[in-house]
Amino acid sequence: MTTDTMITEVVLPGVVEPDGLRLHRRPMPAPRRGQALVQIDATGISFAEQQMRHDLYPGQPRFPFVPGYDLVGTVRSVGPDTDDSLIGTRVAAVTKTGAWASHAVVDVDDLTPVPPDLDPAAAETVVVNGVTAWQMLSAADLRAGQTILVHGANGGVGTVLVQLGRHLGLRVIGTAAARHHAALRDLGAEPLDYRDPATPARIRELSPDGVDAVFDPVGGPGVRTSYGLLAPGGRLVVYGNAAALGSARSVVWVFAKLLTRLYAWNALPNGHRAGFYNFWAGRLIRPAAFRRRLRTDLGIVLDLLRQGVIVPQIAARYPLTEVSAALVFAEARSRAGKVVLEP
């Protein structure tokens, strides 16, 4: 077989170090009816894959599997009785797994058009991250002039949250390691060191009446502090469970404890709201509505990227064949933004 008839993909065989990832080649898959074969121009390393490497991501497939949460690529072929005008168009998709590859077969209904003048790597930074930030901010029902606190403001979602927050006229306080503070100031955030025990007191100084929303990707014991920083009627949005990486307990136990705490707080009479953002909410119950909302929200975010409202934060670019080095770099969190793989 020629190179054009083979697909290259990254296989996660089990709980391994980054150098345990395997490159695998197999015959090019053929799309079925309602599907498209997408040549992947850019995919990324998110915290989800970092958790999957430790077998800590809820609902991840059994090992071995191909990671890769989202992609930007070009449609190369479509299945029988499928709109062939898609061939040659640039698209984005959220796959949850399977995108760390040179090609992927994706349901046509899961594809969102990408403006052709956008750099694929730039577009990749806002597929899952941008939609997550947009949907959380929209659900928080915030008004210009209010204050939000973004934990992990240097991360893939965090940097988009900062930029969208500033675009909406919000004051943004962001926590991150000190080495990221200059970059966060450039994005319009007021940075604080998450490792400094005086940070909660400093937040209270900056916003004496409390913050109107907190966005927290960590979970764990720190959510109690975040909840205590809310203004009357404020909202705590947890969208990750990074604390599970440092816990001796099972990920299910840690996640269940987090949800129990959040929902118990909602029963208190202080007007605060707390919840966990689930990107996939409604996917099984109302799949058509889920897809419509995803396409709409991703279209909005891609347009904001094209307008320059969102400046893509690319921490580094690596070829797919150097995925192990890319994962080491991503997990070191030495640079703000998202690590992009370019097959």
Rank of each mutant, 00 (worst) to 15 (best):
G228D: 15
G169K: 13
L298A: 08
A92K: 03
A248H: 14
T296W: 01
V11R: 12
V72T: 11
P217K: 02
L56D: 03
T5P: 01
T159L: 08
V114S: 05
P200H: 06
T97D: 02
I314E: 03
V114L: 10
R295M: 08
G228F: 00
P64S: 10
A315L: 10
A42W: 09
I314W: 04
V214A: 09
L37P: 12
F63N: 11
R295D: 12
V108N: 09
D83H: 12
R166H: 09
E9W: 04
P31D: 09
M1W: 12
Y318A: 07
G188K: 06
Y263P: 03
V15M: 11
G246S: 13
L327A: 09
S247T: 08
P208Q: 05
Q163E: 14
E322K: 13
G158N: 05
V238S: 05
L184T: 03
V340F: 03
N154P: 01
Y227E: 02
V126M: 11
R224S: 07
W265S: 05
L268A: 14
P27M: 08
V126K: 06
L164D: 02
D81R: 15
L21R: 00
R22V: 14
R32C: 04
D117C: 04
D83E: 15
R224Y: 03
I285E: 14
G271E: 11
R26D: 02
A139I: 00
A121M: 11
R292M: 08
R53S: 14
V254Y: 02
A332Q: 15
V66H: 05
H181A: 12
I173Q: 10
R179A: 09
G155A: 10
R202V: 06
A256H: 09
N278E: 01
G174A: 07
T95L: 13
A326T: 00
P113N: 02
V16N: 04
G219Y: 00
T43D: 05
I45F: 07
F329S: 10
R202N: 02
R286D: 14
R317T: 15
R295C: 06
R179I: 03
R293V: 01
T159Y: 06
A315Y: 06
V108T: 14
S46H: 12
P197E: 02
I45H: 05
A248P: 06
D110V: 01
A242F: 10
Q51R: 13
R273Q: 12
T199M: 15
A42I: 12
V126A: 10
V126W: 06
P61K: 10
D19C: 04
G145P: 11
T43H: 03
M28P: 00
P31V: 08
T2S: 15
A178M: 05
R317V: 13
R195Y: 05
G220C: 07
A176I: 02
A36W: 04
L262F: 13
Y263F: 12
R204P: 04
G169W: 14
H180T: 01
H180F: 03
S85Q: 14
D141W: 00
V16E: 06
L56A: 12
R204A: 13
G220W: 05
K257R: 15
G14L: 13
R295P: 02
A316K: 09
P232M: 04
P29L: 13
V150F: 11
R204N: 04
Y69T: 12
V91F: 04
A92L: 02
Q135P: 03
A48Y: 00
